[in-house]
Write a protein that binds this DNA or RNA. Sequence first.
DNA 1: TATTGTTATACTCTATAACTATA
DNA 2: TATAGTTATAGAGTATAACAATA
Lengths: 142, 142
Amino acid sequence: MNEKASAEALNRLIQLSVLLNRNLSEGLEGHGLSLSRAPVLWMISASGPQTQRQLADALRVSARNITGLVDSLVSDGFVTRSTHPRDRRALLVALTPHGKETVAQLALDRQQLTRGLFGEWGGIDLASFTQGLDRLVGKLRA
Amino acid sequence: MNEKASAEALNRLIQLSVLLNRNLSEGLEGHGLSLSRAPVLWMISASGPQTQRQLADALRVSARNITGLVDSLVSDGFVTRSTHPRDRRALLVALTPHGKETVAQLALDRQQLTRGLFGEWGGIDLASFTQGLDRLVGKLRA
DNA sequence: TATTGTTATACTCTATAACTATA
DNA sequence: TATAGTTATAGAGTATAACAATA
C-alpha cells in the first residue's frame, strides 16, 4: 500500500463527508427538517407506523431523544402519536398526509442530488467506485 | 448514467459518511476533544497562532461559537489566549505544549485509521477511487 | 464607521436518572 | 420484574443581536 496516496484518499473522504453533510442538512432545512428528524420520517415511511422504542433502536438514539424529536415532528405536523392497540404503554408514531408528501419530496431531492453528483460521471468505473465505498463501510463497521 | 447504480453509490456514500463521523468522533473523545473542537487545534497547528476571527472564518462558524470553543479548549489546557501585538481588540490563540502533543497524537490516530481503511486495498485502483472522491468534492463545492 | 470579541439569549441534539403507567 | 415513555436535568454546539473596546 502507498502510504501517501492512502492518506490523501482519507483526506478527500473526510472533506467529502463534511460537504455532503452540509448539503444534506441545508436541503432538509428547506422542508423544516434536520439531519436528526428526517431519518425518523424515513424510518416510518419505510417500515410503517412504529413505537418510539422501535424508532429509538433503529436510529440508535436514546428514548429521551426520540421523545424530543417526535415532539417537534408532531408540532410541525409531520407525524401523529396514537395509542398502540395491544400495548397501552406504547405510542405508535405515524406519518400525516403532510409527512407523506414531505417524504416524497425528500425522495425527489435525493434523486436530484444523485444526478448532480453522478451525472457526467464519465471515465471512472462507477461499479469499482461503489465497491470501494462498500469496502470502507465494511471496515468501519468491523 | 445508470440511475439505479448512481442511487446506490450515493446511499453507500451517505452510510460511509455517518460511520466515518462516528469513528472520528469516538477517536477524538479519547483525547477530550470533539469534531467541533479538534479542527481548531488543527488550524492553529497548520497555520500558527491566529485570532479568533481568523479561526471563525476558516472553520465557517460564528464568532460566538469560536468564543465558546476556545473557552473550553483553554480550560482543558489545549490552547492559550494572548493579546495581539498590533491589534488590541484581537486575541491570539496558540497551542500549549499539551495542545501540541495532542495534535501529534491525532496525527498518529489518523495514520492508523488510514492503514485500517486502505491497507489490504487490493484490486481496486486507489488513484481512480481518489479521483472519484475528488470529483464529488468538486461538485458539492460548486 | 468598521471590526474584535463578549454577554445575553435561544434553539437543536444528545444523554442519564428518576418516575408513572402498564406488561 | 421489565418495558414504554415522560419529566427533570445537564451539557455541547450552533446562531443572532446588542454592546464595549479598539481600529
